[in-house]
Amino acid sequence: MSSSEVNKNFLRPDYVDKIEYLISGMKYGTITIVVQDGHIVQLEKNEKIRIKAGL
């Protein structure tokens, strides 16, 4: 698989839209992209909620 084929896979508009959706509204956290055989197979969202001391 050439690098251009891999780049096309990762830049699919529906993937970009889904990642933007996962990020929207999230203040702290991570988005993990799981790749298998050069294809995105899973997106994981891990959101953190910060609690101020004394509350």
Rank of each mutant, 00 (worst) to 15 (best):
E5T: 05
Y15M: 14
I40W: 01
Y28C: 00
I40F: 06
I23P: 02
Q36K: 14
S3G: 09
I19R: 03
M26K: 12
L22D: 00
I23A: 15
N7D: 10
N46H: 12
Q42G: 09
S4I: 09
Y15F: 15
G38D: 07
L43W: 04
P13T: 05
R12S: 15
V6Y: 11
P13D: 07
Y28R: 08
I31P: 04
R50Q: 14
H39W: 12
L22G: 05
I49E: 11
A53M: 03
G29S: 03
D14C: 00
K18I: 03
G29L: 02
G29Q: 01
D37S: 03
I33H: 04
R12T: 13
R50H: 14
M1D: 13
S4Q: 10
R12K: 14
D17C: 06
R50L: 15
E20H: 12
D17N: 12
L43V: 05
D14K: 08
V6W: 10
Y15K: 05
T32V: 05
E20N: 14
T32N: 06
I40N: 01
H39M: 15
I31D: 01
V41I: 08
I31K: 00
Q36C: 04
Y28W: 14
D14P: 07
P13I: 11
S4N: 07
S2H: 10
K45A: 09
K27I: 15
T32F: 04
N46Q: 15
L11I: 06
V35M: 01
V41Y: 02
L43M: 01
N46A: 05
V34T: 05
S4P: 07
G29H: 00
D17V: 08
Y28P: 00
I31E: 04
V34I: 09
A53V: 04
Q42M: 09
S24M: 11
F10R: 02
K8W: 06
G54M: 01
I51D: 03
Y28T: 04
K52V: 14
D37Y: 01
K18L: 11
Q42R: 06
Y15I: 12
L22Y: 02
V41K: 04
K27T: 13
V41W: 01
L11P: 10
Y28E: 09
Y21V: 15
T30G: 06
V6S: 05
I19A: 02
I33V: 15
I23D: 12
V34F: 05
E44M: 10
K18F: 13
S24N: 09
Q42N: 07
F10G: 10
Q42W: 02
G29P: 07
K18C: 11
A53I: 06
V16D: 00
H39K: 15
S3W: 15
G29F: 00
M1I: 12
Y21I: 11
S2G: 14
V34L: 05
Q36I: 11
L11A: 15
K8P: 01
S24H: 11
V35T: 02
I40E: 07
M26D: 09
G38I: 02
M26Y: 07
E47N: 09
G29R: 02
K48N: 06
H39V: 13
D37T: 00
I31G: 00
N7V: 02
V35R: 06
I31T: 02
Q42K: 12
E44S: 08
